[in-house]
Every structure is written in structure tokens, then in C-alpha cells.
Amino acid sequence: MGISILAISFIVLLILGMPVAFALGIASMLSVMMTEVVPVNYLTQTMFGAVDSYSLLAVPLFVLSGVIMEHGGLSKRLIDAAKAFVGHITGGLPAVTLLGTTVFAMLSGSGPATVAAIGGIMIPAMIREGYGRGFSAGTLATAGGVGIVIPPSIPLIVYGITTNTSIGDLFLAGLIPGLVIVLSLYLVNRYICKKKGYGTHVARAEWGARGKAVWRAKWTLLMPIVVLGGIYGGVFTPTEASGIAVAYSLVLALLYREAQWSQVPMMLKTTFLISGMILVIIATASTYARILTLERIPTLIANFLGALPVPFWIVLAVILLLLLFIGMFMV
């Protein structure tokens, strides 16, 4: 009965539009109150324990780094450099968007921060060049998802902490799939742009202009090497890397002199909102997962799938379709 309440209430709340963090928490609370599988105060202990982690400091710090880049002129320099090289090809601005979001995701680790930083620049630019509004927004929304996979990804940090998996290994595992996603998105965008005639009149930039754009963005482009190189080289941990990313982006923002002191409260507010949303999801998801574990649901599902007389790829396809369906509501 407990698992029925847990699953049905969670699905109903998602369909009704309840934020996923609250849906997880309310479903867990209802299950505990109606079945008394554990004391109610056990939920609060579990939620506190889930976020009481040193490694989770990387979440707000990487988000803050991305926000500083957005307001400090770093993201604009990334866009200018990308535009100089690929802005003239078919679907040039979508390609610039993909390149910009990829590099920015490597610096901030956050999908929402990436979308906020690149979208404010690229969506108006694409609309001015004749790209459709829906196409422009869709390109940015899908490109922002790269931040979930490509390192240093905040969801990968959370996953590593939750499952006690090496975060460095997860970063290495996410690099190639992230680049494959970017390439796949570009091919789809190129096909749509060619079909609809988008972006076919942008002039090719001269090599001198390309060199100037890269030179202006040189310190920003060096940031992924410093952050990721330090992690993979064993110089510092992902949590320490997040602090270095904040310091690096802050120094560049002061150097470029594009950020204003009056923007600091807004930058901190954005960081608190994004980080708080992530941490609340972690806290409530931990209670949901703990109840599932107490009910032995993961073990039952694993035994059921393992006993099916079908090839492994069918089981994998069913799991992927299930995750796709759930992901339609968890936005």
C-alpha cells in the first residue's frame, strides 16, 4: 500500500504541475503518514543528512561562477569568438549557440545558468537574423541540456555524492557523450535551417577578425583548461575547482570592467534561487529514495527485469522510454 501511495501521489502531483521538489516531498510525507513505515521525524533527518555534505558546496559555487560570467562580459566574448568561426555557415547562429553553451557549460556546470547567460544574447540575435521565435527558443533550450552531461556537471556531482561514485570518473564519462549530443543537435539544426532558409546571408569573417575575437576571449577560453585540467590532473577536487572557478571568473569580470557593483545583489539572488532549487530537490529526493529502499522496490524491479526472457537492449530501451516519459513532467 505504501508504494502505491508513494507512486500515485507523485505522478498525480507532477501532472497537476507541482514542482518536482515539492511533489517528491509531499508524496514521501503522505506515504509515511498513512503507512507509518518510519517515524515522520525520520524524513527531516534524511533531508538534512542529504544536503549536509562538503562536496555539495560545488553546486552554489559553480552556479555563482556562471552568473558572474554572464554579467561580467565573459559570455559575450565566448559568443563573439564562436560567431567569428561558424557564424557564416548554414545555421550559423544555432551553431554559435551550441558552441557557446558547450563552453559555458564547461565553466559553470549548470544548465539553467548556461541558458540564462547565452539565451539573453543569442535568442534576440537569432530573431533579428530571421530565425523563427520558436526555433530560436527551442535551439537554446535543447542546447542548455548539454550542461547536464558535459563536465563539470552539477547533476553529475550530485549523482556522485548520492551513489558514492568518483566524481572525476563521472566527468570523464560525460565528456564524449556531451560532445556527441552537441554534434547531433548541430546536424538537426543544420537540416532545419537548410530546409527553411535560415541564416544563409551572413558573411564569412576574415582570419584577422577571428584572431581578434579569440584574443579578446583568451582568458575565458583558458578557464576550462584550468578548472578541468586541475581536476583530472589531481591538483584539486571538484569542490575546490568550483571555488577556483568563482575566483577566476571574478578576476576576469573585474579586469573587463563590465560588471557593476549594483548588480551584485541580483547575482547573489540568482545564485540562491538556482542553488536552492537544486538542494531542495536533493533533500526531498533522498526521502523518496529512502522509502523506496525500505520497501525493497529497487531490488524487486532489478529481479523482475533480470528475469525477463528478452535481449538486454529491449530492457534498456524500456528504461530509456520510461525516463523520457518522466522527464516530460520533471521540468
Rank of each mutant, 00 (worst) to 15 (best):
V315P: 03
I150K: 02
I281C: 10
L320K: 03
S4E: 14
R296W: 01
L57T: 14
L316A: 14
A137G: 09
G138W: 01
I123Y: 04
A247S: 10
I26M: 11
A82P: 06
L56N: 10
L321G: 14
Y42M: 11
T46G: 11
Y54Q: 12
G197H: 04
I301V: 15
A307C: 05
T284A: 04
Y248W: 02
R204Y: 01
H201R: 13
D169K: 13
Y248A: 05
T97R: 00
P298A: 10
Y256E: 04
V318M: 13
Y288T: 00
I244Y: 04
N164D: 12
Y54W: 14
D52T: 03
A117H: 09
L292C: 15
H88F: 06
I225C: 08
E70K: 14
V146L: 15
I148C: 04
G109K: 13
I281T: 11
H201A: 12
I11G: 01
I225W: 07
T90P: 00
F104K: 06
M29L: 15
F236G: 03
L305P: 03
G49L: 06
L74Y: 06
S9T: 15
E36Y: 01
K269V: 10
V158I: 15
G66E: 03
E258A: 01
G134N: 10
Y232W: 09
P19Y: 06
L268E: 07
I118N: 05
